[in-house]
């Protein structure tokens, strides 16, 4: 009975609304407008969540870092000053020594090896795909790069430990190459970054207009001369941007170094690529994986490392975008 009544009422309302609508009465239109405004604010809120994420990252990392720098030791001296943090060569939380250099050194070492692999191979693959490969070949090769790009980093880490490290030990000897080493991690990281650089560079290369190529051929340049003297310079900004994104990924990569590069900060001068060393990310992963107590200097130091990493990668990403926008050759 009740429900029948309700249905009756509802249809009455709808009927009225329709009539009103036909009359040009603003009633339902107003309600719809209000609803539209409401939705607009809901969607705006969704967008603001992403701003809060960034804010959260900055506030959280910044606050804990400040805590680290304001911690006093038994003598009432600061545990670590900003100068010591950036310029001392020992990172031993147990001994209250927080110099980022050993961690930074291995981060730069693994990234260097990775770029040594990824940049020439990625660029080479991009040139081949965009300039030499027929559409059919390209159609079947690109998915392979996409698969490489989609493999989880922990799988690459496993690959480094079970394949690359034994391979390096086989080639250079077990006495030279320790089981955990930065070379193995870096090489595999290079394979991981290769697809990123290849696909970004390929986009840049294929954006170079056809008439530039034709003009170059018209001046009787060979295909390789056209590529090296005309197309590469024209696509340079895109390629540099790709390389910078690659570096930023290498610096922030965690799982490969956590598995293959080793534990324990190690300051080696001159750098030795065949000994164990811990990167910034590897250190954060190892320390936070255990039973870390929240209100300790160790805990704060992880966030200080995270903050340094965040600023560094953010800087690289901003630089990459600046280069793309600033130096993009506008054709037509």
């Amino acid at each position: 009975m009740q429900s029948e009544l309700q249905i009756g009422r509802k249809s009455e309302v709808i009927a009225k609304a329709l009539v009103n609508d036909a009359d040009g009465s603003p009633r339902i239109e107003k309600r719809a407008r209000l609803f539209d405004d409401f939705i607009r604010y809901v969607l705006l809120f969704c967008g603001i969540v992403s701003i809060f994420t960034t804010l959260g990252i900055v506030v959280v990392l910044g606050r804990e870092s400040l805590l680290l720098f304001s911690t006093l030791d038994a003598q009432g001296q600061p545990v670590v000053t900003l100068g010591e943090f950036f310029f001392s060569t020992s990172w031993q939380p147990a001994g209250l020594k927080f110099g980022i250099l050993p961690l930074l050194e291995s981060t730069l070492m693994t990234s260097f090896v990775a770029m040594l692999v990824a940049l020439p191979l990625g660029l080479g693959a991009a040139i081949y795909l965009s300039e030499y490969a027929s559409p059919r070949v390209r159609g079947s090769l690109k998915p392979i790069l996409e698969i490489l790009a989609g493999i989880p980093t922990v799988v690459y880490g496993y690959f480094a430990v079970t394949f690359m490290t034994p391979l390096l030990q086989g080639v250079f000897g077990r006495d030279t190459v320790q089981f955990y080493n930065t070379a193995s991690a870096g090489l595999v990281m290079g394979i991981m970054i290769l697809p990123t650089i290849a696909s970004m560079s390929e986009d840049a290369l294929s954006a170079v207009p056809r008439n530039l190529r034709e003009a170059s051929y018209g001046l009787s340049a060979t295909k390789f001369e056209t590529i090296s003297k005309v197309i590469l310079p024209a696509a340079l900004s895109g390629i540099v941007a790709a390389a910078i994104v690659g570096i930023s990924r290498a610096v922030g990569e965690t799982m490969i170094v956590a598995l293959a590069a080793g534990a324990g900060p190690n300051w080696t001068m001159p750098p030795n690529f065949f000994v164990a060393a811990e990167t910034i990310t590897g250190h954060i992963a190892r320390i936070s994986g255990g039973d870390l107590s929240y209100n300790s200097v160790d805990y704060d130091s992880l966030f200080a490392l995270g903050f340094a990493l965040f600023i560094f990668t953010l800087g690289l990403n901003l630089l990459s975008r600046y280069i793309t926008n600033r130096f993009r050759e506008a054709y037509q």
Binding site: S50, S288, L314
Partner: peptide, 29 residues
Amino acid sequence: ERFIETNIRNLAGVPSIIYGLLGLAIFVR
């Protein structure tokens, strides 16, 4: 709106380990 747009592009490039630290501080603690 421009800020949201830029911000999203930047967030896409933040290393995943940083999100871990954010989650540890905000959601876990």
